[in-house]
Design a protein around this nucleic acid. Structure first.
Lengths: 139, 139
DNA sequence: TCCTACAATGGACTAAGTCCAAGTCAAGTG
DNA sequence: CACTTGACTTGGACTTAGTCCATTGTAGGA
């Protein structure tokens, strides 16, 4: 069963059919879906679920820290259920697909104090951009 | 006079009043403006300039590689005239302000071939997130 | 000066997401 | 089990950021 679902239940989440299907959709995917893709898959399991609910639910999961929001471009945000392992992203410039990657090194350490301008730096995001094998083939 | 303008002219750009003001706006700013902010400043110099033209012109400058497009969140894209010196960005999570930073190390080198999944990786963006001194003070 | 291809215009359109008032229902209480 | 209540869901209107396109204007060469 769903780990994600267990964790959410453990946090006192009220369990509804809608939330269940959203959690299941995310949990079952190893790619990063957009909210609309999540909605499309959720509708397949529960036809009357609304877009607003999908947005609400995703937003709550992000707030709870169970899911990461990734916005690599002007297109739709994508949701990453792999919130418990630090990683970066490899994005296809053509189709927008995202993969998780685990590079060596700690980029936070690469930012010397002299370059911090008084900011309290708490996080770093690294986005590698390129063309995925799929898009390269159909170029 | 404007360096940016000179470079664009040198590339055979047709010079129009609209393009001139857009280039001047970008060139004069050391913060990173959104397209709408660019438009607002452009209108101050040339009241009849249209939004579409500002978008077109910014897009062309990005294509020519004279300006960088930065989208650090779901809000509007920002335009960075400092395209000729590689740098990363330090973003305030509260107010959205952006500063350029120049960290040590080359993150591209940190992505081993085994983590590239067949992608042709051509660029890397690093975004440091934190709270700027200003926002920290008024917290 | 005239031509013409390139550029500008503005209004309609789209995509992604937010907001809200009204209806529904999960789960605790008696 | 039935009741209650506040949390959850709904769908449609709205917003923001940006794109598209047919028409009109104009820079710069002949």
């Amino acid at each position: 069963m769903s780990d994600l679902l267990e964790r959410l239940r453990g946090r006192g989440w009220r369990m509804t059919a809608q939330r269940r299907v959203v959690a299941e959709v995310l949990d079952g995917e190893h790619v990063h879906l957009t909210a609309d893709e999540v909605h499309a898959r959720a509708v397949a399991k529960l036809p009357e679920i609304s877009r607003a609910t999908v947005y609400n639910t995703l937003g709550e999961m992000v707030t709870l820290g169970e899911v990461l929001e990734v916005s690599t471009d002007r297109r739709a945000k994508r949701y990453d259920p792999n919130a418990h392992r630090p990683h970066h992203h490899l994005v296809c410039a053509r189709c927008g697909a995202i993969r998780d990657v685990h590079p060596a090194g700690d980029p936070l350490a690469d930012l010397p104090a002299g370059e911090r301008f008084g900011f309290t730096v708490s996080a770093v995001e690294v986005t590698y951009r390129g063309i995925c094998p799929n898009c390269a083939a159909t170029a």
